[in-house]
């Protein structure tokens, strides 16, 4: 009794700490007042403002575009990298490859962003490419750190599954290329999907690297939000948080129901 009391108290405190600020933000998003903290009554006014704010809407569109492209390309590259790390032993300078494919995981964003910006500028000076900073440079930067995250997920999954499944396919007559397409990739498909989702959120969430590598016409949502909240509060951002929360919670609930049903079947 005593023990489970301690357990639930601790879990309760922990989870309220995680959720309290988010819920407070959602509640304040319904505040009539322009001054965020002074409650003047319930209103959906700021949701209206949010959906009329072209700057936010456009940056949201840009962010979605960059995030989905970055996630897709990073997943392709990350699956290749993860597979190489887990299954191919003859890689020239293997320790170096391991280093460059895991170091982006822990490299501080500010250093990553700075290095990529200086790289784009130098490359522009030398080759004239990229001709200017913009969505492409942000995309390349986001892909670069996302690859490492996807590679880690894929590598862990491949270490986790028995290599004999791939050998069995070969034994049954599948040539190496066919083993990859018909066995390895389908088996690790759930990890590929979670890799894509992670890469997507990383890109959608990134402020620092994007701030360094962005250019005209490539203001992502975090950049716009940051400029709005840097010096003060913004009721539209409250409304935006509530919308994002709603989307994520409904995805999570859907997912939870799905896995619960699945475990009921078993």
């Amino acid at each position: 009794m005593n023990k489970s009391f301690l357990k639930y108290t601790l879990l309760g405190i922990g989870f309220s700490f995680l959720y309290f600020p988010i819920f407070a933000l959602i509640i304040y998003s319904f505040n009539e007042s322009k001054r965020v903290m002074v409650w003047k009554g319930f209103s959906l006014k700021w949701y209206g403002e949010l959906f009329k704010n072209e700057q936010i809407l456009e940056s949201f569109y840009i962010s979605l575009k960059i995030a989905s492209m970055s996630a897709t390309f990073a997943t392709i590259l990350g699956v290749m990298a993860g597979y190489s790390l887990a299954r191919i032993s003859k890689i020239p300078f293997r320790p170096f490859f391991i280093f460059i494919s895991t170091a982006p995981l822990v490299m501080p964003e500010i250093i990553l962003g700075l290095s990529l910006l200086l790289f784009f500028i130098s490359s522009n000076n030398l080759f004239g490419l990229p001709s200017s900073k913009g969505q492409l440079t942000v995309l390349i930067s986001h892909m670069t750190f996302s690859v490492a995250f996807v590679a880690v997920i894929i590598q862990a999954r491949l270490f986790g599954f028995n290599k004999s499944i791939e050998e069995a396919a070969q034994d049954l007559g599948a040539v190496p290329n066919s083993v990859i397409w018909k066995v390895t990739l389908p088996v690790i498909l759930p990890s590929i999907i979670s890799g894509w989702l992670l890469a997507f959120t990383l890109s959608l969430d990134d402020l620092v690297v994007a701030s360094f590598t962005t250019g005209p016409g490539a203001n992502t949502l975090p950049i716009v939000v940051f400029s709005k909240v840097r010096l003060g509060l913004s009721p539209e951002v409250n409304a935006l948080s509530a919308v994002i929360m709603l989307v994520i919670v409904s995805i999570a609930v859907g997912y939870y129901i799905k896995i619960r049903n699945k475990s009921d079947v078993n």
Binding site: A24, S241, I248, A252
Partner: peptide, 25 residues
């Protein structure tokens, strides 16, 4: 599974907005 999803939800929510929430609070 439920607790795990509850742990992951804030992680998927925008980092910037979670920092901003504290600025409000």
């Amino acid at each position: 599974n439920l607790l795990l999803i509850l742990l992951i939800i804030p992680f998927w929510t925008s980092f910037l907005l979670r920092v901003y929430a504290w600025k409000v609070l």
